[in-house]
Write a protein that binds this DNA or RNA. Sequence first.
DNA 1: GCAGTTGCCTTGACAATCTAGGCATCGCCG
DNA 2: CGGCGATGCCTAGATTGTCAAGGCAACTGC
Lengths: 110, 110
Amino acid sequence: MAEPSRELLHGTLEPLILKCVAQAPMHGYAIARWLEDATSDVLQIEDGSLYPALYRMEERGWIAAEWGISELGRKAKLYRITPAGRRRLAAVVAEWVRFAAAISKVLLPV
Amino acid sequence: MAEPSRELLHGTLEPLILKCVAQAPMHGYAIARWLEDATSDVLQIEDGSLYPALYRMEERGWIAAEWGISELGRKAKLYRITPAGRRRLAAVVAEWVRFAAAISKVLLPV
DNA sequence: GCAGTTGCCTTGACAATCTAGGCATCGCCG
DNA sequence: CGGCGATGCCTAGATTGTCAAGGCAACTGC
């Protein structure tokens, strides 16, 4: 995240990544590009945040890595979601919805 | 925040507090109770987070403190929002809207 | 040859929150 | 009277996730 308060991203990177790899196996660089694209650059993913997040999630068993080939024919580490990851995704999305609704409820009445 | 992922609160506590004291001068304990109440306990504010946040915000000139009396007649430190705080509130709310929209856009298409 | 893109990785710092304590006062109830 | 929960404020230290700033290698196009 660049100019928008970086703190907001805290805890949301993991759901975002899960969502990405739930759609299709994807490598780190592609995840970052896809997220920036999908949000019109509202989110900017630093790879200093991304790769550690990927390791954490792999360690926790939510995603699994495998070396393969990117769309451009280059060596890339492809991540796919695990069954535990799908359960986790459902949980964190539900949590995000609850949380965002709570915040909005407080913040939005101008 | 208790069981919901604590990380999500990151960066949102400040807007929430600003919103509270923008409505009426309020003391710390009341802010915590009010937020928990308004969100049906979706947000749980630890005072170990709250008071440091209040100091930060006072230091930055967004709120101002003054010793007074609570509704129950007890000694309490009342916080009110400053003009700079109002500007900050507008900015962070706008930012929250952009951010939440971006996250939801990615997360919600099931 | 050289710059830009793709792709991955690591170290250290930083900032906000949480944990787990502490303190004092008041009201209520047995 | 004694105790206990609620009100109200405070702090030290640990934890956590992100960021900044570097690095490396391979390929493309000019």
